[in-house]
């Protein structure tokens, strides 16, 4: 069977593209943990980073965990990801979007006691967009309301 030139080119390009996509997918799979921007509490628990090592910790601020430290300046809160929890201590100005139940990314390091001391806090917005009228709802309720209106 003889192929027309354009069919040869199509087959050649197809094979090249499949090989390229395969190679890149393998590379991305290999990168999956290194390319993450932050650790989540579950990773911290299963594979604890070294004490004093600079890392980023990301997760949700546990409802009701926000409090003040004994020094009266630092704030304490707990970051969780539904599986594990990490106590965090931070001294500085809080971002506007920092509220209990919302996402946060903290840069800092672990103390030997297992507390995460953050130098910088970045608020993390989630994928839910809800008008202010629905403000009193928690994130989960708001998500349900949105799912209801945009079904």
């Amino acid at each position: 069977m003889s192929w027309k030139p354009k069919h040869q080119r199509m087959a050649l390009l197809g094979v090249a593209l499949v090989a390229l996509v395969g190679a890149v997918l393998l590379a991305m799979w290999g990168l999956r943990s290194q390319a993450s921007y932050f650790y989540v509490p579950a990773q911290v628990e299963s594979d604890p980073p070294a004490v004093g090592q600079n890392i980023r910790l990301g997760g949700m601020v546990l409802e009701g965990s926000l409090g003040q430290a004994d020094d009266g300046v630092s704030i304490l809160f707990t970051v969780h990801d539904g599986e594990a929890q990490v106590p965090v201590r931070y001294r500085g100005i809080l971002p506007d979007l920092f509220v209990e139940g919302s996402g946060v990314v903290a840069e800092g390091r672990f103390t030997p006691e297992g507390t995460f001391v953050a130098d910088t806090l970045l608020a993390k917005h989630d994928e839910n967009y809800v008008p202010r009228e629905l403000e009193e709802m928690t994130a989960a309720q708001a998500k349900a309301a949105v799912a209801e209106t945009t079904k």
């Binding site: 993450s36 993390k124 839910n128 309301a145």
Partner: peptide, 22 residues
């Protein structure tokens, strides 16, 4: 694939977590 500062997709195959107002 990765944990990112950027939020996940709001609109995925037929469902949206963006309120109708937006």
């Amino acid at each position: 694939w990765w944990e990112t500062q950027h939020q996940r997709a709001s609109i995925t195959a037929g469902t949206s977590s963006i309120d109708a107002a937006f």
